[in-house]
């Protein structure tokens, strides 16, 4: 994902709001629509495709609870 999930979601909500308010030229509407569907696709992909990555910082943990 190029931008963070948070940013994508925010943009998506913005697009829906713009479209719901209406009054935009058809061309602009379709442009926003395709941007919105692309964002939904990339967000879904971000959620679905991820396999948790675990990295470790060097430390000196011991065997206890």
């Amino acid at each position: 994902m190029e931008q963070s999930y948070e940013q994508s979601l925010k943009r998506l909500e913005e697009i829906v709001k713009l479209l719901e308010e209406g009054g935009l030229p058809l061309e602009k509407t379709l442009e926003l629509f395709s941007e919105g569907t692309a964002l939904i696709t990339s967000c879904s992909k971000y959620l679905d495709d991820a396999e948790q990555k675990i990295t470790k910082l060097l430390g000196n943990g011991e065997r206890d609870a």
Partner: peptide, 24 residues
């Protein structure tokens, strides 16, 4: 699962544990 987990193992009880947690 989209988030990366970064583990810093730390000593959580006994001598020096508080220092290690603070350091982590």
């Amino acid at each position: 699962p989209s988030a990366e987990v970064v583990l810093r193992p730390a000593k959580v009880q006994g001598e020096g544990s508080a220092i290690d947690i603070a350091k982590a």
